[in-house]
Write a protein that binds this DNA or RNA. Structure first.
Lengths: 349, 349
DNA sequence: AAATCCGATGACAACGCTGTCATACTAACC
DNA sequence: GGTTAGTATGACAGCGTTGTCATCGGATTT
């Protein structure tokens, strides 16, 4: 029932070490031998014992996803993307929601790493953008991949996934501009997220290019939440000269803005256009459906996980090699504009 | 940096076995010794190595959550609940989304169990209600807790968490009845979920009690999804004599129904009342806010995890004991009616 | 006071694998 | 044909725990 490396070795007529070599894809095994072993593995449905591998190799076969995000869709997408990448390579995923405002993260990270529970980490904002967290990780000398907004600070040597919030926000804003909107309100996300600033910057650049000054009254602080969207929109729409369009920093906020507009009996998109950001499933379930920027979270996560795993593997093969000062791998994603029903021509004056 | 049991033993001046005894809460350790060890553990911030424990003890310190649910809020709530329970006891969680329609689950479950990756499993619908899955688990002789609809088949000896869908659906229907609705449409969830039948049963019972016949035309098959809600509501509302209220089997479907009503220019709750089920965060983000039944998924999951963990522990202490035919522990949850804005008095004829 | 028992503790093997190093083998060289 | 590089393989020692069993000492019994 329970197949171990010994069974495989016996069946293949080789030592367990050779079996180990084969399953770890190490060199120096004759093709014929490799095949014998592979056949035995297949026949017995052998799968290495994770715990034993961890213990013996001191490298883990598990990676962790660290996050602090109230957005269920976001998290699920990330998880599934990573899981995809893990499955392909026989790794497992430990999920690790944590509170970015509490100090406990450091302790938790140390625990994960020092007890060799994980071979690497995938970090999402805001952790991926918190210098003290990154420092801790560096000290612990563990592999990690940061998923960050493109504008975040990075060292050359770090691997990371960058999301170009600015470019996407630029497109979104330009879309509104092209519809004839001149007064566009902007609802900021949480200040602990770098994406908040990136998106704001895109908005600014688009206005600037159109020769429209950025009015402070139209840019409101907030958080990436539905409620914040409601509050922000109310405030914006209660002004003497309200905007004809609202750029909400994510879909949840946009849904909140929609809700507020509804409360105030404002027709969308007739009297007011609203755009979101992320293209979560939920942006297709509001009324009207949201115009937004599609952020491929699943892909992003898969890519991040693949990076972590390739690093983890690397240690065995290369390790000794170069002084680790090579440039890290960077991958960039730019969310794409998705036009739906919540944006329309600016109302006539 | 990396503290092992040896360090603790050295510091406490005892053997590693004694340290092991203390951290596993085994008897036969003098209080004085126990304290010495405990102090050393605290001083060194010792945490047992999971991999070593797994390997040596052949019992894992990880549990898995098995699910196949497109509802992100549901999944996240479950995860967080379980994580809470795990953290308190030093366990880790492996998440395991899977496809209930594919055959691969069996293989995956075997893998998880046979390689002692997990000490136990928490199953959510539809897996928790699929006989062949449960059989597999029994054969594998692994601890599991099923989260099921109360009407699902169970053996006495099984631990499980039951959700009384029927009672909650009854309450929800009665709420509509009391508002004067006589024609209430019912949108069923997926047929692979037992809860689908439980909820329908509650609806039936309430109508029956009110002396209103159940009309086949008003009960539509569907799935627990937004789109299914849209389709169902369209169909219902397109009838010659459309219902004045719609019972959607979950919040997502209800949101879909809301969307459909909106498309058809039907005022909610003026012309039509809609109720959902689950009270996901999302039910507060629709317009109008949904009347629904609050299902405490977080609590449910926490409870399920606690049960699994207590079983896992039990094996060490008791094991040899009784013939395992004791009655399993059952916990019951009944979702509670939450009245919001999507339900109102039936329109005058 | 000797015999008995039980609670407290430790020595040591085992868990299934990987890392290290030694050894056997093969091919290539002069 | 004998030597020299490799290249392929295996023996063996851990990795950090837990489980088993032996041992020690003090309390209880006779």
């Amino acid at each position: 029932m329970k197949v171990t490396i010994n069974d495989v070795a016996a069946r293949a007529g080789v030592s367990i070490k050779t079996v180990s070599r084969v399953i770890n894809n190490e060199p120096s095994v004759r093709p014929a031998t490799r095949k014998k072993v592979q056949d035995a593995v297949d026949a017995l449905h052998y799968q290495p014992n994770l715990a034993a591998r961890n213990l013996a190799g001191s490298r883990a076969y598990t990676i962790a996803l660290i996050y602090d995000n109230p957005n269920a869709y976001y998290v699920i997408n990330m998880q599934n993307g990573i899981l995809d990448a893990c499955k392909a390579r026989g790794y497992e995923l430990l999920i690790h929601p944590s509170n970015s405002r509490s100090e406990s993260v450091y302790q938790e990270l140390e625990d994960l790493v020092l007890h060799s529970k994980v071979a690497g980490l995938v970090l999402t904002p805001p952790f991926s953008e918190t210098p003290s967290v990154i420092d801790t990780l560096k000290k612990l000398n563990v592999d990690y991949v940061r998923i960050v907004s493109k504008t975040a600070d990075l060292e050359d040597s770090e691997d990371c996934i960058q999301v170009d919030d600015t470019a996407a926000a630029f497109d979104l804003t330009q879309h509104l501009l092209q519809l004839g909107h001149k007064r566009i309100g902007f609802l900021c996300g949480g200040e602990e997220h770098v994406s908040t600033y990136g998106r704001l910057e895109g908005y600014r650049q688009a206005l600037e290019q159109a020769g429209i000054p950025v009015e402070d009254d139209l840019v409101l602080k907030g958080e990436y939440s539905f409620d914040s969207g409601v509050q922000g929109a109310k405030k914006l729409l209660g002004q003497d000269n309200p905007p004809t369009a609202i750029f909400a920093s994510n879909d949840e906020m946009a849904a909140g803005a929609l809700f507020a507009a509804r409360l105030m009996n404002i027709d969308i998109p007739g009297q007011l256009s609203i755009v979101g950001f992320e293209d979560s499933p939920f942006s297709r379930q509001t009324w009207p459906k949201l115009t937004t920027a599609h952020q491929p979270n699943n892909e992003i996560a898969k890519c991040a996980a693949a990076l972590v795993l390739s690093k983890a593997r690397g240690h065995t093969a290369a390790e000794s090699g170069s002084a680790s000062k090579e440039a890290g791998i960077k991958r960039e994603f730019t969310p794409e504009l998705v036009v739906r029903d919540s944006s329309g021509p600016a109302p006539a004056e």
